[in-house]
């Protein structure tokens, strides 16, 4: 009886606060890590989690808007965009503080072009998004190789300071990304664009009949995702002392994982921004916990898989409630 009720309560919670589970998961993992570490190093762990989590959050927010537009919508060009945008930004800036804004603009513009190209393939050639964004990522990655040739130019000092610096112990990049998340939450829940995206994800035909400009909105969404990936590429290059060709690789699965763990429905039409931050912290703390416990390479992958499945299962109460 009690289990039944608590199960129903859990499902209800998943519906009203889907973002909660990623934060609870992050907290649990944080507690385990601290216990294993004799309750020391908390500040250091949190600081690191905020700065590395920020990168997951940036790409996650863009990916979330894409996934929200309904089944089949996904952006696989994220890693290639990160590589190209990082290289463009570092080359344009050339290590000079005065060139930060032009460099950032050039990288974001490249992101916008990649996103537009993605949607062009989807819309004009009617290719499924998964294939369209995958094939464009090959092209973009090749461009990054030709353009960058592994060139490593140090970021301008001021940009490096933003990427790695702290204010009162809190990483500056994390503050910027939290502000970005707040703005995007307002955009998602309050703006015409955000509501259109959700409507398209729930039922694309109904949205069309209701007067939503489906094509424009989907175009904007793919462009947005690529711009966020580009921004992530710039900050990642600034953070790690220069752009490298393979720095985006881990963000393909991570960008999707933070969206799903954050409580956004993979089927689209139901999403939230705050869960992405919870999931970003969760993913990083998971690495910290496994490293603190000294788990070997093979077991680590198994643990990562099992824990992610567990959180998604817990947070997935919503899907049952939907039918």
């Amino acid at each position: 009886m009690t289990t039944k009720r608590s199960a129903a309560g859990l499902a209800g919670l998943a519906r009203s606060a889907p973002w909660l589970f990623s934060f609870v998961g992050a907290l649990v993992i944080f507690a385990v890590t601290l216990a294993a570490n004799n309750w020391s190093g908390a500040g250091q762990i949190i600081t690191a989690a905020l700065s590395f989590g920020a990168f997951y959050a940036i790409v996650g927010i863009g990916q979330m808007f894409v996934i929200t537009t309904g089944p089949g919508n996904i952006d696989l060009s994220v890693p290639a965009t990160i590589a190209l945008a990082g290289a463009i930004a570092m080359t344009t800036m050339g290590g000079s503080d005065a060139m930060i804004l032009p460099g950032l603009a050039a990288a974001i513009a490249a992101g916008f072009l990649i996103g537009s190209f993605n949607y062009l393939l989807i819309w004009l050639l009617r290719i499924p998004p998964i294939i369209a964004t995958l094939s464009s990522s090959f092209i973009v990655q090749s461009l990054a190789i030709v353009y960058g040739r592994g060139l490593r130019i140090a970021p301008p000092p001021f940009l490096a300071e933003i990427a790695t610096g702290r204010v009162l112990g809190v990483p500056i990049l994390a503050i910027v990304t939290i502000l970005l998340a707040v703005v995007m939450a307002v955009v998602l829940h309050r703006s015409v664009y955000g509501r259109s995206v959700t409507a398209i994800g729930q039922n694309i035909n109904a949205a069309d009949l209701a007067g939503v400009r489906v094509g424009t909105m989907r175009f904007a969404t793919y462009a947005l995702s690529a711009c966020f990936a580009a921004f992530c590429g710039v900050m990642l290059a600034a953070f790690s002392g220069g752009a490298s060709l393979n720095m985006g690789e881990e963000y393909l699965l991570a960008s999707i994982a933070v969206v799903v763990i954050g409580g956004t429905s993979v089927a689209g039409g139901f999403s939230n921004v705050s869960g992405i931050w919870g999931a970003a912290l969760f993913l990083y703390l998971l690495i910290t916990m496994l490293n603190t416990l000294g788990v070997g390479a093979g077991l680590r992958q198994i643990f990562t898989g099992v824990i992610i499945v567990a959180v998604i299962t817990l947070a997935g109460g919503r899907k049952k409630g939907r039918g």
Binding site: A36, S40, A48, S240, S244, N246, E250, I287, N291, T292
Partner: peptide, 17 residues
């Protein structure tokens, strides 16, 4: 993963302990 950014993250995560 033979990658500077991945190594940086992994090492940062293990440093507190």
């Amino acid at each position: 993963d033979w990658t500077q950014t991945v190594a940086q993250k992994s090492v940062a995560s293990v440093l507190p302990s």
